[in-house]
Simulated scan of single mutants.
Amino acid sequence: MRKVTLMDVFTHPVAQKYLTRSGVAHAVACAYHAYRLAIKAGIDPDMATKAALLHDIGHYEWYTDGEWDYDKYKQYDIHAIKGAERAHKLLIRLGEEPKAAKEIALAILLHTDSYLPEGDLEKNKLQRIVKKADELDEEPGGNHHYRKIDDRLAIQKIKQLDQMVDDVRLPMTKTV
């Protein structure tokens, strides 16, 4: 039995604040992509779905003269750093196992390379899955952050994903 479910994470006020800012529909879609990718890779879908759900909670809103400034975002944003910190703190508060909270935070930290110096960084399976899940849901100009989803539908999808994770998690032991 998991100590912390996706529903625990999703409904927490801190998560709601930042998921609303970065796009609930995008976060939920990424969590589903991460589930499928984790199953295929043979790693724990619990950690993958949590990391994908929270991957953008570090977003800052970049505006110029009241308008979203995608170019400024691409140039200055370091949301993965702030998101990793927020996710780690939230997961620990909720009672997540500390090692899992750290692995989830690191996957969030490395889901984008937009702020990293040039060069190759060796990523583990979980980190690659969260990056791929994000890429699978991207839209030009950052529009994936502005798609809408009805609150009831989002809750229904999170409940369904929690059940899917529970159904396959018992035989899964490999986490990264």
Rank of each mutant, 00 (worst) to 15 (best):
I108F: 03
A51Y: 00
A38Q: 07
Q163S: 09
W62R: 06
P140W: 03
Q160F: 05
A80E: 12
A29Y: 05
D44G: 09
R36F: 08
G142L: 10
Y63R: 14
L109G: 08
I149P: 04
V28C: 14
D151H: 07
T175G: 01
K148V: 06
Y70N: 13
V176E: 14
H144L: 01
D71T: 05
V24N: 08
G119D: 05
D150Q: 08
R128G: 06
I39G: 00
D167T: 04
Y76M: 12
D44L: 10
E139M: 15
E96D: 02
I149H: 02
V28H: 11
D56Q: 08
P140I: 08
Q127T: 11
M172N: 04
Y35Q: 08
H12C: 05
Q156S: 15
D44T: 11
E138K: 15
N124E: 05
Q127I: 05
Q16G: 07
D113N: 10
A105N: 08
L116F: 10
E138S: 12
A38K: 10
G58C: 05
I57S: 02
I108D: 04
H55Y: 03
T175R: 13
Y73N: 05
L116H: 08
E138H: 13
E138C: 13
R147G: 01
L91Q: 06
C30D: 14
M47T: 15
A41G: 07
H55E: 02
L90K: 04
G58K: 06
I149K: 06
I155R: 15
Y18G: 08
R147T: 01
Q16M: 13
Y63K: 14
I57M: 13
Y70F: 14
M1T: 12
G142I: 09
L110D: 03
M172V: 14
I104M: 11
T20S: 15
L90H: 02
A84Y: 02
D151N: 11
K131M: 12
A154D: 04
G83V: 02
H12D: 14
A154V: 09
K159Y: 09
D150A: 09
K174Q: 06
A107K: 09
D166A: 12
L94R: 03
Q75R: 14
K157M: 15
I149R: 06
L121A: 10
I158F: 11
G141Q: 04
D65Y: 11
